[in-house]
Simulated scan of single mutants.
Amino acid sequence: MPSSAADPIYDDVRAQILSGAIKPGSPLRQDEIAKRFGVSKIPVREALRRLEVENLVTFERNKGATVRQHSEKEILQLLDIRVALECRALELAIPSMITSDFRDMRQLLADYAQRTEVAQWSAMNARFHHMLYEPCGNTLLLAMIDDLQERLGQYLRLLVSTASGLERPMREHDKILEACEKQDVEGAVGMLRQHIEATQKEVAAFLRRGI
């Protein structure tokens, strides 16, 4: 498909939304974006409409475009989908795990335990989960998991990490990895399910407090 003047605008705004650089609820002023890119409002509007289709931007009458805010219900539903996708990926991955996989995951968890910043926990948590599922060999399933993480975006991933803290996830990561090393597929998948569901409950409580 040929590129258009909207493409770089779409790429830039999308990346900023997903990274959390532009927060949920923030206005996206078309005149300012057009000036920054040196274009008319037409490609800006096209880019924002494409982002609207992806549920990243909303248009409101007399207000214009804003970064979409996920409701509590939507966030918890995304975590529900995590349970289904990631448990299946782990189930497929365990039989294919090799010694170097366990060594690398152990090293990551050791580094993880030394981190103090929420952003670092969030990034290393995502990396650990990716390493758990990578041996599954199902590229479509892995792409769906990555897409879900992208839909959550950095802002929501940080919210999840803040709600969960460090101690409980770290303890559960260790137990899941131990079960994987023992080739205990049922035990590891069961613990992963509980792990994500515990996160879901913590996030729900966190959101109810109005944070």
Rank of each mutant, 00 (worst) to 15 (best):
R45A: 09
N55Y: 04
R49L: 12
P43F: 09
R61W: 11
R61I: 11
A34Q: 01
I42M: 13
V39T: 15
T58N: 14
R49N: 12
F59N: 11
V57N: 10
V57K: 08
F59V: 08
R61A: 12
Q30A: 08
V57W: 09
A47I: 09
L28M: 09
S40E: 06
I33C: 03
K35P: 01
T58K: 15
D31P: 00
V53W: 00
K63Y: 07
L51R: 07
E32Q: 13
R50P: 01
K63M: 10
R50Y: 04
V39K: 10
K41Q: 15
E52L: 08
K41N: 15
F37H: 08
I42D: 14
E60Y: 06
K63V: 12
E54P: 02
E60T: 14
P27R: 15
K35T: 06
R61Q: 13
F59W: 15
E32A: 12
P43E: 13
G38S: 04
R50A: 05
K63H: 12
E60N: 12
R45H: 03
T58Q: 15
T58S: 13
R50N: 10
V44C: 03
E46R: 12
F59D: 08
I33A: 03
K35A: 11
E32F: 02
S40V: 03
S40P: 02
S40L: 04
F37G: 01
A34V: 00
K41C: 09
N55T: 09
G38N: 04
L51E: 09
E54Q: 12
G38A: 04
L28I: 12
L56C: 04
F37Q: 03
L51S: 08
F37A: 01
N55A: 11
E54G: 05
E52N: 08
L51F: 01
E54A: 05
I42C: 01
R61C: 02
F59C: 05
Q30Y: 02
K63P: 03
N55G: 05
R36I: 00
G64P: 10
T58I: 15
R29V: 15
N62A: 15
S40F: 03
G64I: 11
K63Q: 15
D31W: 00
A34C: 00
R49P: 00
R61P: 01
R50E: 09
R49F: 02
K41S: 12
N55D: 15
E54N: 06
I33T: 05
R61V: 12
G64A: 11
N62G: 08
G38H: 03
R61K: 14
G38M: 02
R50D: 06
